[in-house]
Amino acid sequence: MTQALVLAAIDPRIGGVLVLGDRGTGKSTAIRALAALLPSIRVVADCLYNCDPDCPAADCPHCRPPGAAPRLRAQTVPVPTIDLPLGATEDRVVGALDLERALADGAKRFEPGLLARAHRGFLYIDEVNLLEDHLVDLLLDVAASGENLVEREGLSIRHPSRFVLVGSGNPEEGDLRPQLLDRFGLAVEVTTPTVLAQRIEVLRRREAFDTDPDAFLQHWSGPELVLRERIVAARARLAAVQTPEPVLESVARLCLSLGTDGLRGELSLLRAARALACFQDDPVVDEHHLRAVAIPALRHRMRRNPLDEGSATPRVERALAELYDA
C-alpha cells in the first residue's frame, strides 16, 4: 500500500490507487498521511480552481475574467487532498449556483464544488465501493476528460479537474462497478497482520501518539522529510529514465497472456515501473521493476474465472513466472 501511494505521488499519470482490505488496518490513516509527504505546488492566488500560474486555464473566471487583464499573482500551497463523503450531493461535488448571491443581488455566480478543489491534487473516497451510482457516473466523466462541465440553473461552466483518485473500502461490503475499478491505476489488498511483533509495534506506536502527539510527530518528522525529498528527486528523474524495447515487449506480452481488457493495464504497469525505477535511482527500467508493480497494476483488470482462484494475484504470479522463468 505504501509503495503504491508513493508511486502515485511520483507520477500522477499512473491513475490513482485503490486500497481494499479488512476494517481497522490503517487504510484511511495511510492515505490521509500522504498529504504530508507531498511537496507544495504553486497556484494563482485566491483561485478556487488551483490554476497553475505558468499555465492558467483558458476559461477560468478568476484567472482570465471577461474584459479584464489576467490576475496571476502566485502563491505556494500544500497539494490539495479532498475527501468526497459518501453522502455528498451532486451540487456539492460538481458545483452549483450560489443561491445567497443570487437572492441578494440577482447575479448568477457559480459556486465551485469538490471537483474544483481537487484539481492538481488528490480526491479521496473512503468506502468507495458504497458510492452512489450517479456520483460514480460523474467521476467517470471527469476522470476521462479532465474537465468538469456544469450545465444547470442557467449556468454553463467548464473548468479543469485533473486529480489522482484514491479510494479505500472493505470488499465484503460490495464490489465496485467495473468502469470505476478500471480507472484506478494500482489496486492493493491490505490484510490484518498475523505476525505478533507487527501487532505489538502497532500498539506501541499508537500508545506513543496518544500519550504525546507532538513528540511522536517530531520523532517521525526526519524520516518523513527524507521520503519527501526522495519523491521530489524521483519526479525530477522521470523524463530521463530509459525504457528499453525488451521491457515494452515484456509489458505487452504479460498483459496479452492475462487477457486484460483495453490498454490501460499496459500504461499503468509501464508508468508504475518507471516511477519505481526513479524512486530507486535506477537509470533504466528492468525486469525487477516490472515484477515489483505487476500485481497491483494488473490484478484488478482481469475478467473473473470461476474455475480459477478467487484472487487474481496467483494468475499474475504465474504469468510472470512463465514470462521470465521459462
Rank of each mutant, 00 (worst) to 15 (best):
L97G: 04
T243V: 15
I125E: 00
L320E: 03
D105A: 10
A294V: 05
V150L: 11
A275P: 02
D83C: 04
L86G: 15
C47H: 06
L203M: 12
C60H: 09
S250P: 00
S311I: 03
T81F: 14
M1P: 07
I82K: 06
V93G: 02
L84R: 02
E127C: 08
V43H: 02
E245Q: 12
E249D: 13
P12D: 05
T76V: 15
E147T: 12
P283Q: 03
I200R: 13
G169Y: 00
A240W: 00
D261G: 13
V77K: 09
I125K: 02
G265F: 03
G265R: 05
L114I: 02
P213Q: 10
R301D: 01
R299W: 03
L140S: 11
Q198R: 13
L34R: 01
A275Y: 00
E153F: 07
G121E: 05
R304C: 06
S268H: 05
L123Q: 02
R120V: 05
P85D: 09
A297V: 06
T260W: 07
P80D: 09
A116L: 04
R101W: 00
V284W: 01
L38Q: 12
G167A: 04
D210F: 13
T194R: 15
E173M: 09
A57D: 14
R291G: 07
A292Q: 11
I157T: 10
A118S: 14
L165G: 02
R162I: 06
N148A: 13
A9Q: 09
G95V: 01
P53L: 06
A233H: 10
R42M: 10
Y124K: 05
S161K: 03
E153N: 12
F163C: 05
E309T: 15
P213C: 08
Q218F: 07
V150I: 11
P61I: 04
R253F: 04
E317H: 08
A275N: 04
L225M: 13
V128H: 00
A294I: 04
P283R: 00
I125M: 04
F209V: 10
N129K: 07
V77W: 11
G154H: 09
L248F: 05
S145E: 13
E309R: 15
R117K: 15
V247Y: 00
V6M: 11
V293S: 03
L7S: 06
F209N: 03
W220F: 15
R299V: 10
E100L: 14
A236E: 15
G67T: 08
G21R: 04
R13W: 01
F163W: 04
R42W: 11
E207R: 15
A116V: 02
E322T: 11
W220E: 07
A144S: 14
